[in-house]
């Protein structure tokens, strides 16, 4: 077996760039999917039946599909729906947002439901409006339950961004796979890819554990 690890160092520029795109994609998706999740959760609790049904359908559909399929689907359907030729990055971002918003919606819904009804009633009894009760009483308490789950979702999302590589978004996985096929240094590049994901993901997993310990609710 003849190995040449220098290819990894030579490719440091593109690899670093790919890693940055991965992180950017993760951050942007979360920035959209957190408010998206809250809106969907509120819509599901709406008294307007069609609104609640739409949100329920949206959430159940997009969290019960393989992400890879969603990425392909977005790649072909988005241009038809929007009439625009979207770049791969935007398409990948859209697929991730659909998926993660659906997850976050469930996270927020269970967090909100975990707050006893007496809490809302106490707020209403003080003369607060429904939205005041939600913002001042329910959300601050639900946050504690929601935060650890959001942190776990973040790490899953970070890993899932690797799947948008199939539509040529230039993130870490795609970059590494490209260099692999151009240089034929398969073992070296695939190992480097795994190592970079590990280096980035391992501390995140540890931070998640810390958040769970600090904020986790014990039954």
């Amino acid at each position: 077996m003849n190995l040449d690890w220098s290819i990894v160092w030579q490719s440091r520029g593109p690899l670093l760039e790919g890693a940055l795109v991965t992180i950017l994609l993760t951050a942007l998706t979360m920035m959209i999917a957190v408010p998206g999740g809250i809106v969907l959760a509120l819509m599901r609790g709406s008294r307007l039946r069609p609104v609640a049904w739409f949100a329920t359908g949206f959430v159940e559909l997009f969290r019960n599909l393989p992400l890879l399929l969603l990425v392909y689907w977005a790649f072909y359907v988005m241009p038809v729906l929007t009439g625009l030729g979207l770049p791969p990055f935007a398409t990948g971002l859209a697929a991730l947002c659909l998926n993660v918003s659906a997850y976050n919606s469930e996270t927020f819904r269970s967090g909100i439901n975990s707050i006893r009804r007496g809490q809302s009633e106490a707020g209403l009894a003080l003369g607060m409006s429904r939205s005041e009760v939600f913002r001042q009483i329910v959300l601050p308490q639900a946050w504690r339950r929601v935060l650890p789950i959001l942190a776990s979702t973040w790490v899953s999302l970070f890993k899932d961004t690797s799947l948008v590589s199939v539509i040529a978004v230039g993130e870490l996985a795609h970059t590494a796979m490209q260099i692999r096929s151009q240089s034929f240094r398969v073992l070296e590049m695939l190992t480097a890819m795994a190592a970079i994901y590990w280096l980035l993901g391992y501390p995140q997993a540890k931070i998640v554990d810390w958040i769970h310990r600090k904020y986790g609710v014990r039954e």
Partner: peptide
């Protein structure tokens, strides 16, 4: 366990399929 939490399943699959045969 923590390594598997850090590495995407895509990367694990690709590594096992393409890299393990080389080793």
């Amino acid at each position: 366990i923590d390594s598997m939490r850090a590495i995407p399943v895509f990367v694990v699959l690709v590594w096992i399929y393409f890299a393990v045969p080389i080793i």
